[in-house]
């Protein structure tokens, strides 16, 4: 018992000593100048369907539509993807080329790049404008946190999750979020058209 009481006392000088040893702080890392609320700050990398490492900041400079899903989802995700298709139908071909769609998987274990490639084909997704990413469970959780998405994988493999469709602006900020499939998408379409008509620096 004495040992445990002494422990904090003994730690103090050591940690102070370690502080002193490192008083010369390493030079600050040159952080990209993203805005305070930019999702590009999230430290998470993913793999696209070609197995190439990608990150959200790759979209810097252009607005895009972002949603999270998993390919074996029996209920919500098919509706979610249909809704994104419906949203797209409200844009001209020219506008569509400037508004990429990114779907990121909650379930990287099952949704390997190869599986997602097949999935994209089965859904007739306009790749590479539509991107499907997976990565690690940790990175999926990081992105979900940034988007305010909650999810839980049940022991049987099914994932309960919220399913918002998010419009991200060229700076990586959440411009507008639809709560989920079936929600009126007019505000998102209108906002996206405003972003597309505003030239970015």
């Amino acid at each position: 018992m004495k040992k445990l009481i002494l422990l904090p006392l003994l730690f103090t000088p050591i940690l102070q000593a370690s502080d002193a040893c490192c008083s010369v702080a390493p030079p600050p890392e040159t952080a990209p100048a993203y805005s305070d609320n930019s999702l590009f700050h999230l430290q998470a990398s993913f793999l696209n369907t070609d197995g190439k490492e990608v990150k959200l900041a790759d979209y810097e400079g252009k607005p895009f539509i972002l949603a999270m899903f998993y390919a074996t989802c029996p209920t919500v995700c098919p509706r979610l993807i249909l809704d994104v298709h419906k949203i797209e139908a409200k844009f001209s071909e020219e506008e569509k080329t400037q508004l990429p769609v990114l779907l990121v998987s909650f379930d990287p274990e099952t949704d390997t790049p190869a599986n997602l490639k097949t999935f994209a084909k089965s859904w007739d997704m306009d790749t590479p404008r539509w991107q499907l990413w997976s990565g690690t469970a940790e990175n999926a959780r990081t992105l979900a946190a940034g988007l305010g998405i909650r999810y839980r994988k049940a022991p049987n493999g099914e994932i309960s999750h919220s399913a918002p469709i998010t419009l991200i602006n060229a700076q990586g900020e959440i411009e507008l979020q639809l709560a989920g499939p079936g929600v009126d998408s007019t505000p998102l379409v209108q906002q996206a058209k405003i972003l597309l008509s505003t030239p970015s620096e």
Binding site: F11, T12, L15, S18, D19, C22, A25, P26, P28, E29, A31, Y34, S35, D36, N37, S38, L39, H41, L42, G146
Partner: peptide
């Protein structure tokens, strides 16, 4: 995790120091 341990972390990783961290994080 104690303040002392966290101090060692921010000393080694200045971007996690108060004032350097973006609001989203």
């Amino acid at each position: 995790v104690t303040n002392a341990e966290y101090l060692a972390f921010v000393n080694e990783n200045p971007k996690w120091q108060r004032g350097n961290i973006p609001r989203i994080l």
